[in-house]
Design a protein around this nucleic acid. Sequence first.
DNA 1: GAAGTATTGGATAGGCCAGTACAAAATATG
DNA 2: CATATTTTGTACTGGCCTATCCAATACTTC
Lengths: 199, 199
Amino acid sequence: MARPRTFDEERALDAAMRAFWANGYEATSTQDLCEATGLGRSSIYNTFTSKHDLFRRALARYIDVMSVPQAEILEDAERPGLERIRALFARIVDTEFDYREDDERSIGCLTVNTVVELARRDPEAAALVERDLDFRLGLLRVALEAGRRDGTVTTGRDPDTLARFINATIGGMRVSAQAGAGRAVLESIADTALDALRP
Amino acid sequence: MARPRTFDEERALDAAMRAFWANGYEATSTQDLCEATGLGRSSIYNTFTSKHDLFRRALARYIDVMSVPQAEILEDAERPGLERIRALFARIVDTEFDYREDDERSIGCLTVNTVVELARRDPEAAALVERDLDFRLGLLRVALEAGRRDGTVTTGRDPDTLARFINATIGGMRVSAQAGAGRAVLESIADTALDALRP
DNA sequence: GAAGTATTGGATAGGCCAGTACAAAATATG
DNA sequence: CATATTTTGTACTGGCCTATCCAATACTTC
């Protein structure tokens, strides 16, 4: 019925996500977004209405994309509970090194970056992140409860507290990675955190 | 010999620090800095040369101000090693609640915020933060080694690894606070982390 | 092939950005 | 009190920012 798009909306969204992820919301201009996606301004505004809306969608996509494999790991009934947490840590470390610009520093995690840069003044972003937090805490509790049942998690602390702790550890690893920590350091942080699950 | 200043440079720097801390570097305009400090543009540029330079000084001041009490805690020979770490955690929690805007969300830690927002593209800021990281890791090692000697830290992991872990935990607590965690949650994260020191 | 419709590129708008220019004001020194 | 010197307020600059406008384009349907 009319002229069709010459670009793939999801690819564009991915490119925008990468730009926000690597540079932050404020430091990414609409011009940057045009260059990152390869689209013109018109196409961007026609498709995504505003920079803020594009960010919202990019963040939502990031959360969706990242949570699938994490859920798979944490709900993997084949593995003991503690091993699921260990595998999650390993995945976190891998992503910190897989997704990188030319730079030697990690670009971190868009969710963490958003919490730090935007959560206080952007209620929509805060809501997305909070929803994701609840979801991930739930997944962690599942794995921790499994660990308690199968004897790999022996601490007396309740799964809720432990889930918060594991989640905080992941945040700390991501900040450490952005501060320049290498693979060995991240792995040792993860290993040490696991000690708290079987004291 | 000439007209004297009508403002206190340190007070102005403090106000600017608070502004950057609460809102981030990019989202804080020079206009915001004028309002926060109560100074006119001329006074700001006359005293601090540029927004970036003002930020650099604000960050340096933040690091200085924060590290003094933390060093005191971690080097306090009266306390066993583990208790020093515990006291440090308690202080982190307190600061997350002491320094707050009207908001119900924490403004976090300027160092962490800087790592996340700026470290990748601002080498000066990155250098300040890295220097501070080395300093704090050193303090943590001191306390952890003391803990090993006095028997309160019983884990077999080496102090360097443990220092990284404790530091990451603090980062994770700060991100959690910015994501909306309350006092009880932060305290439980800290308590759980301590479990890793005496497995 | 004509009509209708959505996309696209380029120009543009209005505002805010960091930073500067300059003159008026204020004070220490002589 | 005069002079030298610094601070301060105001106005301004050039540029980049997000967002819009509009005409040209390209495609689908009839």
